Simulated scan of single mutants.
Amino acid sequence: MPGQSFPPERAIGRGADWYRGDCHVHSVHSDGELTPDQLAHRARDAGLDFIATTEHNSAEGHGAWGSLARDDFLIVLGEEVTTRTGHWLALGIRPGQVVDWNYRAGDGLIDQFLNQVHEAGGLCVAAHPHAPYPSGDFMYPFSGFDVVEVWNGLWTSDRPWNADNEAALAEWGRSLAVDIRTTGTWRPAMGNSDTHLEGQLGIPHTVVFAEELSTRAILDGIRSGRSWVAESAAVEVSFTAGVEGRSAGVGEQLATLGRPVAVQARVRGVPSATVSFRTDRGTVARESLPSHGTGIAQWRTTAEDSVFVRAEVRHPSGYVAALTNPIILT
């Protein structure tokens, strides 16, 4: 488009590594208060490696981001599709592509627009399923969507967590257990800030393992569940499951061959945290970590007892500081 500069789809990055990013961001091109330039600088200050621009029902801002990309900073093009009965994120769409929003649950239209995003190589995210405002409640089934945004930061400026996020996390956790048991497939979780105002960017964000810092690799990592959610870049979590010299990380599958499995979460940056391990049987173990904010929580299980295991890290207040996607046990 004349006069516009779109960001490249690949940055040099660090090769195969864990990358931090916020995939739900608004600028002055819709209803945010910050310019793309301000957002890019805030993202770097927040320790992010990538962000996605997701203006409401518009691609108007896509061409404002090209000059803001860097060798170590990726910008993903997207849209927040604000329908009449729920919002969703179209991530990785083509420059200038606009996804239609004028429909509602029950009219049979949404699948064609999900297909449009998938045909462009993009990712469809069910956004803030229990947002406390008209059209914010997500009334579509999760089927057809690739990912669920279980942690949205827009309404948590005075605290890192709220009841709407708690409800979204619980709903996703229930669907996770049902999906894995019945179909063997599952839908990952992610967290984003939904930035509109100063001070929101990166709270929370998603930490993704990607083969490179590119739109395709980042979306592949999110789609596969090789990711976890952090309230800030100060929080570090390493989550693994191992059996007889073999191990798997978040989003991976571990063949146990009927042997006991050692589960471990290494946590940094959350003073006096409580780590809970959750499976298809609900919460199965909790462990308190030291006041200095660094520690290891461990637990043992079997594939017979646990179809999957995931971890949550909470502050003493009960607010979530980090949560992971599952490790699947077979």
Rank of each mutant, 00 (worst) to 15 (best):
P8C: 12
R10T: 09
I12N: 07
A16Q: 05
G21I: 10
H24D: 00
V28M: 07
E33G: 12
P36L: 10
P36Q: 11
Q38F: 06
A46R: 08
A52M: 04
T54Q: 03
G61F: 04
W65Y: 09
D72F: 06
L77V: 01
E79G: 09
V81L: 02
T85P: 07
A90N: 09
Y103S: 13
A105F: 09
F113A: 05
L114E: 06
N115G: 11
H118A: 07
G121S: 15
H130P: 02
P132L: 09
P132K: 08
S135R: 14
F142L: 14
F142V: 13
V148F: 00
L154P: 02
W155Q: 10
N162Y: 03
E171G: 05
G173N: 13
D179T: 09
R181V: 13
G202S: 06
P204R: 08
E211S: 15
I218P: 01
D220C: 02
D220K: 08
S232E: 00
V237S: 00
T240P: 00
E244T: 15
E244Y: 10
G245W: 11
G245L: 10
G249F: 03
G251Q: 00
A265C: 14
A273E: 05
T274K: 12
R278V: 07
D280W: 09
T294L: 09
S306R: 05
F308E: 14
V313T: 01
A321K: 02
T324K: 04
T324I: 08
